[in-house]
Amino acid sequence: TEWNVSLWGKRRAFTEHVEKLAELVDQKTGGEFTLSISYGGLSKNRENLDGISIGAFEMAQFCAGYHRDKNPSITVLELPFLGVSSLEQEVDLAMALYKHPAVEKDLGRWNATLLMPSPLPQYNLVGVGDAPATLADFAGLTVRATGGIGKAMETVGAVPTSMSATEVRQALDSGVIKAASFAPHAHMSFGTIENGKWWTTNLNPGSVHCPVVVNTDALADLSDAHRDALLSSVDEALAYYIDFYNNKTMAAWGPALEERGIEQVTFADAEIAAFKEAAAAPAAASWIEENTARGLPAQELYDMITGMIAGDS
């Protein structure tokens, strides 16, 4: 059996768990079951869920925020200021969420079964011009931030501006925006740090959630041995991913900032608390309202996630 896997961009920290999964499955089945990974050849990233639903390929990665209406249930993990503190914790939250019947049903509309998350650390801003000393300095600052993070930035007076990720570098260099929010690996690969002057270390407004899914029918059609080989490899692939992100990507991040003389801005705890106060609750309330209207048990999903986070700390 050969499965086609639709990813995008190029091989990077963000795709290492899928690469590892392919390696493990190949090993365990003696080459009988292979995953053929394509970077952008099979679909556009925003259409990966469509491709799964059609049956054009059997496995794919996408980000929930690309199309919230396609997968409203898992956008709960993109709410600002959830307080997720590690990649391991993010994996635990995601795996628990994926088992919830409402979530299974939501993705079931696409004939998709959630396999594993691609945990990303908290987003932070890289910016040009004078570094902000306090949150008040964000007033009037044009920033590229989408979804929940954009909403959060609005609450401190920043002006979110939309553009595709590939235009961010140009917009930053030319002064159209003053700051951009990404996870560290994306700040490096989209080049925002090349001319950036400062970076916020602890704004931590949230992250994006990008699961890997499989076609439900294709999963059912696998022989028991092959299915077992796949499902039993998920934990090891995720462990490999987390190790790679923490020890390779994050290890490169600090030196990359220092090499370019980028100022690291850390806000006082009280300020961050005030930011969270202003941004988190309204965003959660509107998420719950909106998704209850869709017929999702939104309050229950929200309580489950926040409850797990509270229980951890």
Binding site: K70, G147, G150, S162
Partner: peptide, 26 residues
């Protein structure tokens, strides 16, 4: 048409099952 249908849902707000990234236009 099938591509359209996957983005359309009579039961959903604004009949939308697929929305734009930034301001969630259907």
């Amino acid at each position: 048409w099938a591509h359209f249908q996957r983005s359309f849902d009579f039961g959903a707000p604004m009949w939308s099952r697929d929305s734009s990234m930034d301001i969630a236009l259907p």
